[in-house]
Design a protein around this nucleic acid. Sequence first.
DNA 1: AGCCAGGGCGCTC
DNA 2: GAGCGCCATGGC
Length: 268
Amino acid sequence: MLLDLDLTMRSGQTPHFVWHHSAEEGYSRALNGKTVTLSLSKEKPESNNEKFCNEMLRSEDDLEKICSRISENDVFMRKAVSDFRGLRITKSDAWETAFCFITSANNSIPNIRNSVQKSMAAFGEKNSEGLHEFPSAETISRVPETELRKCSLGFRAKYLLKTASMFCGNDTDFRSKEEAKEFLLSCPGIGEKVAECVCLFGYGFTDSFPVDVWMQRAMKVVYFEEKEPKLKEIYAKADELWGPLKGYAQQYLFYEFMSNKRREHANK
DNA sequence: AGCCAGGGCGCTC
DNA sequence: GAGCGCCATGGC
């Protein structure tokens, strides 16, 4: 399986915020009272819970084929899939993903991770090895706002509380992206962009296409000849170019464009 | 000091 | 339905 584990686990998707990492032990998290481990052994993923990790890493997806599809006749995308070879889209729990991306609003990736980790430490039960579980929606819904705010969540705390009760009060096992999105958009703190993120990283609908400021710039420069496109036009173009795989295209485009700009900035 | 960070909300018009 | 200020917090 084509996989760059470090790139995938630190690419601003849900596992980046939830999983622990150490150079010696690799990646780990608490789950149902146990500890799931994940690391590389001879280029291949190794875990004590292969079922869980295979689902998270979407091991069934043929990344080689996906990358060649989304970069057909596309110089920019060809460079992106080459620069970030082995970057996979991950599939995590919908509630965990919703929590992470509600927290992402007007926030930086290090801060998001900090807040999520603090929330896990404060409200997630410890497993037998002292690792904190991700707190359930039920658990969070019963936390006083003042307590949740101590996790540096700021104005997002009240959204998380309300959305937590939405998640534990409804059947959130959706069959289609449309159903999932309708529910997600009814949750406080979840707008268009975060809804697409949860559809992609939390429900596994790979035709989702989260558009943030980076994606706006990337699409404008690469596919709209510097002319500012409307959101609907971006969606239409992404669908035309990549169809059901536009979630993957988004991740490579986001990463390629952001790191280019980061480099430019660093060189100034 | 001021701006930005994988936005959303509530208010205008 | 598009445009705007505001929202907490941390890093630079």
